[in-house]
Design a protein around this nucleic acid. Structure first.
Length: 231
DNA sequence: GCCAACGTTGGC
DNA sequence: GCCAACGTTGGC
């Protein structure tokens, strides 16, 4: 599943040939269509327009990344990885592995060092935003796709052309208070009705996407909730 | 290239 | 545990 990060990998992962830019197979169809800006050639205005539409603007992006804070077994492996688990890692840094959805992967590949992301707790008692982290290493191949024992093993992925990527993230801080999904949803509904920063928030408009972009407006609004009374 | 069947996500 | 939403697969 495109679910979440799991165990942290080594802090200094091996260098690896990053995605060869060759052939597009049929299976890679989706990745083409929602390929992001990132290093898109200067001539590629379509991709840029697409990315602009998805993310607001290119230079300063914000992200939301989902992970499960409660134990759940998948192929005999516990996939639990909450913000406390990130905090407990060496250097409070982990690689965000296990993403198995092309669109989410493409967002991972679009991330730049220094960009900030919300750590979102999903599939749990109280879903919502728990804290902040930042990107400390840009996309490189996800080692779990080659590990037979991993719940995220992908036998169709080849070492010389890895399908799936990770980024490294580092804990910044907890949000001043937990911001529940239910509260965000109330704002989303209100903003949808009469306008406001959360009206198009991907959390609600792209339901199952585990890695998603936020506009600065969305990011700032969510952060402003920290200082407000739980509604 | 369509689309039905299937599998996964994830809130409730 | 249920099930709606939606991505993926594969037959044709």
């Amino acid at each position: 599943m495109p679910r979440r990060a799991k165990r942290a990998c080594r802090n200094a992962p091996e260098p690896d040939p990053e995605m060869p830019s060759g052939k597009r197979t049929k299976a890679m169809k989706t990745e083409t269509s929602d390929k992001l800006v990132v290093e898109g050639g200067p001539s590629d205005s379509t991709k840029k327009a697409q990315a602009a539409k998805d993310c607001g603007n290119e230079s300063s992006r914000y992200w939301l990344m989902k992970s499960e804070p409660e134990s759940r077994m998948e192929k005999g492996v516990d996939v639990k990885f909450g913000i406390e688990d990130l905090k407990a890692q060496p250097k409070q840094t982990a690689c965000w592995d296990g993403v198995r959805n092309y669109q989410a992967r493409n967002f991972l590949r679009a991330m730049k060092v220094g960009e900030e992301a919300f750590f979102y707790h999903s599939n749990c008692k109280e879903p919502g935003i728990a804290g902040l982290m930042k990107i400390v290493k840009e996309a490189y191949p996800d080692h779990t796709q080659f590990e037979k024992g991993s719940p995220h093993y992908d036998p169709s992925s080849k070492k010389d052309n890895p399908k799936w990527s990770v980024v490294d993230v580092q804990f910044i801080r907890m949000t001043k208070r937990f911001i529940p999904l239910a509260e965000l949803k109330v704002h989303h509904q209100a903003h949808k009705a009469s306008g406001g920063p959360l009206e198009n928030m991907a959390l609600f408009t792209r339901q199952r996407l585990s890695v998603q972009p936020l506009t600065k407006g969305e990011f700032d609004f969510v952060l402003s909730l920290e200082d407000k009374k739980p509604s």
